[in-house]
Write a protein that binds this DNA or RNA. Structure first.
Lengths: 261, 261
DNA sequence: TTCCGTAACTGGCTTGAGCCAGTTGAGCAT
DNA sequence: ATGCTCAACTGGCTCAAGCCAGTTACGGAA
């Protein structure tokens, strides 16, 4: 081990983490492989078990490794399976009869399952209210919460918000909203989507999201706040997509506007 | 509330973390406020210092809190300042004479600084090679690495890759590439951007990125892999944007293609 | 043969102790 | 007033020990 030390890095936990990281990156340890146990790492490096444990925590935080209680610590698979993005709302996809999620899952050879968690009348969260153009403080929206699974693994939580006054008494309040999903119904209500806006952020999950998505530590979430605008440039639907970032990516195809001269 | 729980939450560290989290979320503790010290938390909850420490680690991992050596633990500001996205490449922005980054920084009232780290001939990374349509294994690309700062805080690392055969001997090899930046030069070489593709992922930073962006623990990065296509649908430029996710978001405006019937 | 208990692993979490390093402010010397 | 030292805080990291809980494989009982 020619561990050159021109830099000040004498910390045992980092040294162990760095050694393991190197082993992972040069392929000595492949995805799925088990790392030495905490106890044996500690012995091997002449450190306390807590120190070996700390090293593993560092790697877990970087998303390189996943600890499984009672089984061991494993090098994480680096697959990124699903891609969502600008064609999510493309009307062209209507022709397939599949929702965008099922379409993408099918592309990847995975089985899709969608669970409707609830359809309730609620007060909108502030960011949603702002975008949908409804007031906060009153129960002015319908909130449809869906969970999406690929091969029974939860990958996406979607909360869709519609104006209560419009959704009231329509199939928009039903779990199965009919042909072409809610966009079909919204079109019948006179809203043709002509423009969408996606606001994308990433962050660490809340404990709630962590549980719902069964997230291992060290996996961030991608949050997309989508707003649909109709032919009158009125917002008529806002959705919040929360993806686990190690399983989903986003893909946007952008036509570039040419300069008008 | 479908979360049925037999309330199995006797863990001291989580209990402390949960209490603090609640205090933060209901405003008892505001952004910038100092939390009690590890030692006093431990005493207050009748736990060991390590346990209080673990509680703080949990909050830090969720990005709620930031520990400063020698000073204390503080509730983190949750400003999200900069937004980048679909108009990043819009030719319309050319008219301002500002690069997209300077434009966005100016919008937010912040001072922009761009540092050119290096312009070197290199072998492309695999994902870049694939998208740019060049072989791996030979030094077939020019890599321009820039770091972007807002108010002297690093917010973005950008690596731009161009084909060596095209860039060779042109201003594309210079730090200051002339009017309208590299896109101006590429246009002179016959590449008009007509389409772009952005592939977006989020992940925890590598130690290298962590250092460059001066990232506190618990902050993920947003990575955008951008490909520019010219009038012949040929890719001519690939860029990798790495943002700190707590300071930057992405904004995409999407014209929705209407169904052709 | 199948089934089931158990032993020997695994990580999860806590304790309590100690030392190091960065920060701050009070108070002394100039 | 200015500038310095230093004590008393802060978090950072490690150690050593112990108990708990999930997993797995082996071996004996049915």
């Amino acid at each position: 081990m020619p561990t050159s030390s021109p830099s000040p890095e004498p910390l045992p936990s980092r040294r162990i983490a760095e050694t393991l990281r190197a082993a992972i990156e040069n392929g000595e340890l492949s995805p799925g492989d088990r790392l030495p146990s905490e106890r044996s790492l500690a012995e091997q490096y002449g450190a306390a078990r807590n120190t070996a444990r700390e090293a593993i925590r560092i790697l877990a935080e970087q998303g390189l490794v996943i600890a499984e209680h009672g089984r061991g610590v494993f090098v994480r698979e680096r697959k990124r399976l699903l891609r969502f993005g600008s064609d999510r709302y493309s009307l062209k996809n209507r022709e397939t009869g599949l929702t965008p999620f099922r379409l993408e899952a099918a592309r990847q050879g995975r089985t899709a399952r969608i669970e409707v968690l609830g359809i309730t009348r609620e007060e909108p969260p502030e960011d949603v209210a702002e975008r949908l153009g409804v007031p906060t403080g009153i129960a002015g929206v319908v909130h449809r919460e869906n969970h999406y699974f690929a091969d029974d693994e939860p990958v996406q939580i979607v909360s869709t918000y519609l104006k209560w006054e419009e959704a009231q008494g329509t199939p928009l309040m039903e779990p199965r909203s009919g042909p072409h999903g809610i966009y079909g119904r919204l079109e019948e209500l006179g809203h043709v989507m002509t423009r969408g806006r996606d606001e994308i952020t990433a962050r660490m999950p809340s404990p709630h999201e962590s549980a719902l998505l069964r997230l291992p530590p060290g996996v961030p979430v991608l949050e997309v706040l989508h707003t649909s605008f109709d032919q009158n440039a009125e917002p008529f639907e806002v959705s919040r997509y929360v993806h686990r970032a190690d399983r989903a990516g986003l893909l946007y195809e952008l036509p570039v506007e040419q300069a008008e001269s």
